[in-house]
Design a protein around this nucleic acid. Structure first.
Lengths: 370, 370
DNA sequence: TTGTATGCGTTATCAG
DNA sequence: CTGATAACGCATACAA
């Protein structure tokens, strides 16, 4: 292993003390220009890059924020080489939403001078990577489903944590801030649009996994809007329980539609628990020769980027990804500054994005892509 | 700032030495079960998470790999609040490809037990974040366009570096491995498909930014295929120079098509330098009432996930994202183990993905989404 | 303005 | 199997 230069070597070469090297690199004012030059020359010649570990240890702070998100598929595709391709597609396929979260966090972190340390893991994994990350950052964002509550509670003793999109029921002990979006009211608004603007009466909800709290909240909003108009949902399994469950992937959405097609006539509107599901649903409908939105309207939830490039454009409820990142970073910074601040619970508003998949006309004259 | 527990406190509470604590947490065998229990109890009670900085310093290794990629837009949207929305869309829009790279790297890193430290920056920025990252990882992947060559050369003294998608001309001094994909031959193959299978003769290339080496390589493959058939490209600016330049975003692709429409009849085939450009082009064509692929065929390059969900599905050349991540990690690990190994230059094969946007029939019976 | 000396929290070596 | 103790590389308070 090549042994990289240290402050000592730089100091020696520059003919100054290590303190001066440190000061120059930290951009302190109180150092003579000549000293500065000597140091910089030595730094360049030696290819010196300060060891982050030492800086962090001495400075008692890292320049890093952490982000842990659920590993949806683990390495199943590796374990089952027999059908590698399908799995590969399915898993990356399900990542759209995480991509946006990662993006938003990276941007927000960077603006505050932090790099972002990311790792996926799953509740059922050993929590090793989560601890690795937690031990190396000044603040940590954990997406729901990433680690068991105990792990989060454990980690909170070490680093400020923001829990993202955690179900309202599952609250972690200890001082952790919770950040989420208005799932229920967002879906409520979307459903009202379908009911009032379009006058649809035959709608059906395609849920996510049965244990998904996000899906449940959105379903609640959907049901509430229906109830207000005295309507009932097509195809209800049990009282208040959606009948149709996808798994938040396009493949899942397509599969549900396939089943629906076998049962008989498809409802006039398919309200999907997230965008991927809607994408898969539209694809399956197209395969079956049904036109969207003329014969079947479809809507999503999340507002991932691809939604606007589909044809027809996907009507959906957009989460404020950028703002989520910003608020998460801000919460972390506040708690870094003042750790005993009471825990906050923030719910960010969502925005209805009407495109064509619900039956609305394409915006004339306007260009979606600019 | 809350002061988190240290080994000393854990050791004291458990009634053992710090060495034992360290051993237990490291999973060493040679420790009595009773000791192990005492330590784990103390760890849990105290919420102890080892400080990564100290571990890394003592262990001379981090559990982290770094990834630096170009910041396409910086914070322009922040600086110019006047037209915030359009910029916001444009910039995240251009991220698809990076998303896939990040994903692939995260997966590959995780499989090797590493977390991934990411940060965006641009050649024109100060290189601060790049140094921050470089100082905190055992290996670093740098995407082309992220940092000036000198910065990379500088950093190489400290940590193994893999340069991703760097133009063949721009090679960095020092021992850095280069990793890329077969841009030229991939585009050559795609073009031959258009020529031979479909018999098109009126094709036109929509390039990326004029200084993009990727775009240039792909253009070269395109031209070569045309030349083999004795064809010339529609709308050539200068000898060997593409006339139409987008900027690798959907907005750019749409803008090019808009200009094209004003000039007169659109070529039969638009071969785009990347997927985003193609997406924008298709969208603009649709707005203009032109049908894809019946009236105008369109193709892309990269194979981003959304390509398969569009309608028509986008015919494109797919980069092996997963493999890129895998190979990058592997190169890094090799060089960590043996730093004076000669630099490698690896070119990964690409794969033609035929869908409907080129004019091929939709695959019957097959379900794209499962 | 610059240099000296010490602490940061772990791991690992080496005795016991 | 366990316990002292010396690095690890840098930042900073303090002294000059």
């Amino acid at each position: 292993m090549r042994t990289s230069p240290t402050v000592y070597e730089v100091a020696e070469r520059a003919g100054v003390s290590t303190a001066s090297v440190s000061r120059v690199l930290a951009g302190h004012d109180r150092v003579r220009q000549e000293t500065r030059d000597k140091v910089m020359a030595a730094v360049t010649e030696l290819g010196y890059v300060p060891r982050g570990a030492a800086q962090d240890l001495a400075g008692r702070r890292t320049a890093v924020l952490g982000l842990c998100f659920p590993d949806l598929v683990g390495d199943r595709d590796i374990a089952r080489p027999g059908r590698a391709r399908p799995d590969q597609e399915a898993d990356t396929d399900a990542m759209y939403w995480y991509d946006e979260v990662i993006r938003g966090m990276e941007r927000a972190a960077r603006r505050s001078g932090y790099a972002l340390l990311i790792a996926a893991s799953h509740e059922t994994d050993d929590a090793n990577l989560v601890l690795t990350v937690a031990g190396r950052c000044d603040g940590l964002v954990v997406l729901a489903g990433t680690a068991p509550a105990e792990t989060v509670e454990h980690v909170v003793a070490r680093v400020p944590v923001v829990l993202l999109a955690a179900p309202p029921g599952i609250r972690v002990r200890g001082t952790v801030d919770h950040l989420g979006v208005a799932n229920e009211s967002g879906m409520h608004e979307l459903t009202r649009h379908l009911l009032d603007t379009h006058g649809y009466t035959d709608l059906c909800f395609i849920a996510g996994p049965p244990d998904s709290a996000d899906s449940a909240s959105r379903y609640a909003g959907f049901r509430a809007a229906l109830a207000e108009r005295g309507l009932t949902e097509r195809g209800l399994a049990a009282a208040g329980e959606p009948d149709l469950h996808g798994d938040f992937t396009a493949a899942g959405g397509a599969a549900v539609v396939t089943r629906l097609l076998q049962r008989g006539p498809v409802p006039r509107v398919l309200v999907c628990a997230n965008d991927q599901t809607a994408i898969g649903a539209m694809s399956a409908l197209r395969q079956a020769g049904l036109r969207v939105p003329e014969q079947v309207a479809v809507t999503g939830f999340d507002g991932v980027q691809v939604a606007r490039h589909l044809s027809p454009g996907l009507t959906t409820v957009a989460q404020p990804m950028r703002e989520i990142g910003e608020v998460a970073v801000s919460l972390l910074q506040q708690r870094i500054a003042e750790s005993d601040r009471p825990a906050e619970e923030i719910q960010l508003p969502v925005r209805l994005e009407v495109r064509e998949s619900c039956g609305c006309p394409a915006p004339a004259g306007r260009r979606e892509d600019q």
